[in-house]
Nucleic acid binder design. Sequence first.
DNA 1: CCGCAATATTAGGTTCACATAACTTTTTTG
DNA 2: CAAAAAAGTTATGTGAACCTAATATTGCGG
Lengths: 232, 232
Amino acid sequence: MRTVSHSGLSRSNEDYLKTIYELESGDQQAQTSAIADALAIAPASVSGMVKRLSELGLVEHEPYRGVQLTRAGRRSALKLVRRHRILEVYLTSKLGYDWDSVHDEAERLEHAVSDELIERMAMALGNPRYDPHGAPIPSRDGEIEQPDLVALVDVPLGETAELRMVNDRDGQRLRYLSSLGLRLGAVFDVVARQPFRGPVTIRLSGSVPREQIVGHELAQSLGCSIRGQEVG
Amino acid sequence: MRTVSHSGLSRSNEDYLKTIYELESGDQQAQTSAIADALAIAPASVSGMVKRLSELGLVEHEPYRGVQLTRAGRRSALKLVRRHRILEVYLTSKLGYDWDSVHDEAERLEHAVSDELIERMAMALGNPRYDPHGAPIPSRDGEIEQPDLVALVDVPLGETAELRMVNDRDGQRLRYLSSLGLRLGAVFDVVARQPFRGPVTIRLSGSVPREQIVGHELAQSLGCSIRGQEVG
DNA sequence: CCGCAATATTAGGTTCACATAACTTTTTTG
DNA sequence: CAAAAAAGTTATGTGAACCTAATATTGCGG
């Protein structure tokens, strides 16, 4: 008996599906080399695995073109995303993890937990809708909210905005954000924007408003809602 | 990067070590076929793996003789046992699992959780000393209490005893025990014992004392302390 | 104490998931 | 638009961990 989880897929299979899902959320198609980068493996290995996933009916692959999840593939990926995000919420709210350390733990556990455990955790948490980084949690039946957010880098000068979502991959980046006072729900005005991919200056509201400078790249990865505009 | 956990050992390695540890607790040496049975794999596969574990310095193997854990091997095994048992306590006390369903979940999670998570769970539980089946939990530094218990089948006629420990492997057996009212801490008198590996009859104390008949084999797997005698 | 049953090991084979090297296709660009 | 660069694929190989079949060792009963 080979090591397979709940879904009947190997850990590796699951990791590929989740990675492809996440890449599709950005571009239209997931590229071989992007998958390879994300999983830190050689592109040739991806070609091989993609062929297997394709034979399992989980992805569609037009050689030299790109990979797309099928309906079944997306379902599996979303199950894994649900596991990951529920775990993140559980570990932070019940076991004292910080938002910058929780990702790695969840990444390993997501392959080992049963559906039952995830649902028990979700229950104990009151069925949360967002993870500690603001990402929406897919429902049991594979629905996921498409957050309608604007990257900080695209918030117009002078607008007031709220930080709603950050990428959970990089713990150091998250620790840095905390040190700037940029937590989820932080409200701020955009007071300056340098051209040529320069930094954005914001003024955080609070009892003592303070200004912070955020580099372009970082500002690209911060999902914000603009005050006054309602968000779906 | 191959799939390895915290310890630097593969999941398979860990499973072997834990199995050998558990077999050694009974006999002196763990036999190849006993390991194979416990892990539901072919004896030939065990021979191969044992050689690898031996090269890693985790077991000592005299061909055709048997396997014994080295100090390092025992340390790894006890770490895994600690993980397993802390998980069992956590899942039962914090997430509503029953003692008959918790083993399988813990069995998968024990390979995925980090040391940190286990210690956080232990902390949240107040550093429990026993798992939900009464088995002692090894300490962080690999000490484990040797419970000084008597199998129900060996409790003398007329004695009053308390159920202190049951094997956690078989969920059905545990459900059956529950249905008899035999939970941990249950106190009873031995009122009859049939010879030739026959059943034991006990009278459970409680507001309404009731008699139960327990088969020989089952009675062998129940660890009891006899009332009046103190237990180490 | 010999031979057979039980137990264990070795030999050789499979699958999974990776790797490297060599080759092909696509895209970019001077 | 041709050549170089980038991206992707195929071929081939590795190691882990399993398998079956064949062989070796041990230990027990007659």
